[in-house]
């Protein structure tokens, strides 16, 4: 199960498992969001390299417009994947309260 939606404040919420089967849908959605974006990962249970690729492409698009992509409410195990990938040095990340 994977869901992605944007709220009235422009925060994108992702929920469930962002794997290779769901990455194209996530990319299609994020390609439509405006510059300066925040993604709330509180309900994201899992991410694989396909999901990391979606974040990287989106980050590059937004940065090319001089804006930034923030990732908030990131769980410890998702942040571990970011650390292994070096994404913790590329993104502005706010960890979830443990």
């Amino acid at each position: 199960m994977f869901n992605i939606a944007i709220n009235d404040e422009g925060v994108v919420a992702v929920e469930g498992r962002l794997d290779a089967a769901q990455a194209p849908r996530a990319q299609e959605f994020l390609d439509q969001v405006p510059d300066q974006c925040t993604i709330d990962m509180a309900a994201l249970e899992y991410i694989s390299s396909a999901g990391l690729g979606v974040l990287l492409r989106t980050h590059k698009r937004i940065m090319s417009g001089g804006q930034s992509l923030r990732l908030i409410n990131v769980s410890k195990h998702i942040n571990d994947i970011f650390s292994y990938s070096g994404f913790d040095r590329l993104f502005e990340i706010e960890l979830a309260d443990s």
């Binding site: 694989s48 390299s49 690729g53 990287l56 980050h59 994947i81 292994y84 990938s85 070096g86 590329l90």
Partner: peptide, 17 residues
């Protein structure tokens, strides 16, 4: 993994992980 953003590409990360 220490490369700057403009040099990073999505490919290859899965097997590395």
């Amino acid at each position: 993994i220490n490369a700057p953003l403009d040099e990073r590409t999505p490919g290859g990360l899965g097997l590395y992980l």
